[in-house]
Design a protein around this nucleic acid. Structure first.
Lengths: 173, 173
DNA sequence: TTAACTAGTTGTATTTTACAACTAGTTGTA
DNA sequence: TACAACTAGTTGTAAAATACAACTAGTTAA
């Protein structure tokens, strides 16, 4: 955490924190996969992060105030990683990157469905999702939960599983 | 350009192209600073990029189809770098990162003013700016230019210079 | 003719990343 | 109570990326 920044440009300062190939993937897994423990992040990482890199990035994200770490009451050794407001507000950045990747890179269908829903839902949906994250990570209760409608997190997850199920059917049949 | 991607996740694929500390800064200088030549990007880089890193990143961005390279008629040796549509559509990503950096990092005032205007203008302003970039980089003429109003690029630049001028006055007076 | 400008390349030291193995302690089960 | 599995990491080493300075080769304008 040296204060010797390369410049005071907002984009540069963001890149100094997040400009590598792993940090935003960790944030992604916490936000969209609800991965909260070291081992979850390590073994369920789609891209196969190394344990020393994961430990280093978690440390840096803690130092930068993007994450916090607390004890998990269920297990003396378990650490629970939570997003801060600063971390939660990375969702629009991730959404915008996901939209760009979906449009211009060779994404796989089941992993692109979340990006599609985030694009269709737009900033309104992002805000709703961020409120859910505030409840989950910061303990801030949701003011209004639209009656009879699953959460954004649940809808994204359901859409993903639906595509996977359809793919299995297509492959088998 | 190896096809061995770590995963088909849109966010991951975006990071595979742009996940380092320099690529998006080069895009930023092209978009907001209208830097089109190697030497401009090298010597006017706020953060001081090294020439071999710049050469390497330009090469990768060309390979990925984010930039194109052409001869500058004014000088046989000059290369002119232009954004593709894929590159132009990185503007929302940069805008979102700039907004996050402005909110959560120790930005300098004169470099944060553009981020502020991009935030206030929202996606409508981004779309207008992207049309200007399409004219400049792709030769696509602007359909409608609001009469008597400077371009978005000019407004961003003017706002920056205004802050710098005010800072000079304050420092001298 | 010459100085300054053009886009890079080359060599070397430092830093970062990747990969595998390992530590130290905790928990659930036989 | 012993033991296997699980917890969050650390350590050692090789490979890759980055930083820094010097340099190449050709072009342009005075």
């Amino acid at each position: 955490m040296n204060d010797a920044h390369r410049s005071g440009c907002p984009i540069n300062l963001t890149l100094e924190v997040l400009g590598d190939k792993w940090s935003l993937l960790i944030i992604r897994d916490i936000i969209f996969g609800n991965k909260r423990h070291f081992r979850e992040l390590l073994t369920q990482s789609l891209e196969g992060i190394a344990s020393n890199i994961l430990a280093d990035r978690l440390k840096k994200l803690l130092e930068e105030g993007v994450l916090t770490k607390s004890d998990d009451p269920s297990h003396k050794q378990k650490a629970l990683y939570s997003l801060t407001e600063k971390g939660i507000e990375l969702l629009p950045v991730l959404a915008q990157m996901a939209m760009w990747g979906r449009k211009y890179m060779p994404v796989s269908e089941e992993l692109a469905i979340r990006a599609q829903l985030l694009e269709e839902g737009g900033p309104r949906l992002w805000a709703e999702f961020m409120d859910e994250l505030r409840e989950r990570h910061l303990g801030i209760p949701l003011k209004k939960r639209p009656a009879g409608r699953p959460s954004v997190g649940a809808r994204l997850q359901a859409a993903y599983e639906e595509v996977v199920a359809r793919q299995k059917t297509a492959a088998a049949g």
